[in-house]
Simulated assay, not measured.
Amino acid sequence: MTIQAHLETLEKKHGALEEELRTALTSPSSTDRLISDLKRRKLRIKDQMQRIKESTRH
């Protein structure tokens, strides 16, 4: 997998998590644990994308 393809895959996952988080935040049955887990996973992916972008600039 190329770096660009990997980055695109991460961006899709990040978008999917964003949508899942949006749904969870509006659902009364969502737990705080679920919401924090989604936020943590989303942040982890964002960090990975940032590291890839920084490594390709050098």
Results as ranks from 00 to 15, higher is better:
Glu20Asn: 08
Leu34Met: 11
Gln50Lys: 03
Thr56Cys: 08
Lys12Ala: 15
Glu20Tyr: 00
Lys39Glu: 15
His6Lys: 14
Leu21Trp: 02
Leu38Val: 04
Ser36His: 04
Arg33Lys: 10
Thr56Arg: 04
Thr31Phe: 00
Lys53Ser: 06
Thr23Gly: 03
Ile3Trp: 06
Glu8Lys: 15
Leu43Lys: 10
Leu34Asp: 06
Arg33Met: 10
Arg22Glu: 13
Leu10Thr: 00
Asp47Asn: 12
Gln4Leu: 14
Lys13Glu: 15
Leu25Phe: 02
Ile45Gln: 01
Leu43Ser: 11
Glu18Phe: 09
His6Met: 13
Ser30Arg: 01
Ile3Ala: 14
Lys12Ser: 14
Gln50Asn: 10
Gly15Met: 07
Ala5Thr: 09
Leu25Arg: 09
Glu54Arg: 03
Ala16Arg: 11
Asp47Ser: 08
Glu20Leu: 10
Leu10Phe: 05
Ser27Tyr: 03
Arg33Phe: 12
Arg57Met: 07
Arg22Val: 03
Asp47Cys: 06
Leu38Ala: 06
Gly15Trp: 06
Leu7Trp: 09
Ile52Met: 11
Gln4Thr: 15
Leu7Cys: 06
Ser27Pro: 01
Arg33Ser: 10
Thr2Gln: 08
Ala16Phe: 07
His58Cys: 02
Glu18Ala: 05
Ser36Tyr: 11
Pro28Trp: 00
Ile52Ala: 02
Arg33Gly: 02
His58Thr: 04
Leu38Gln: 11
Gly15Ile: 02
Ser27Gln: 04
Ser36Arg: 09
Thr31Pro: 08
Leu38Phe: 12
Thr2Asn: 13
Ser36Ile: 01
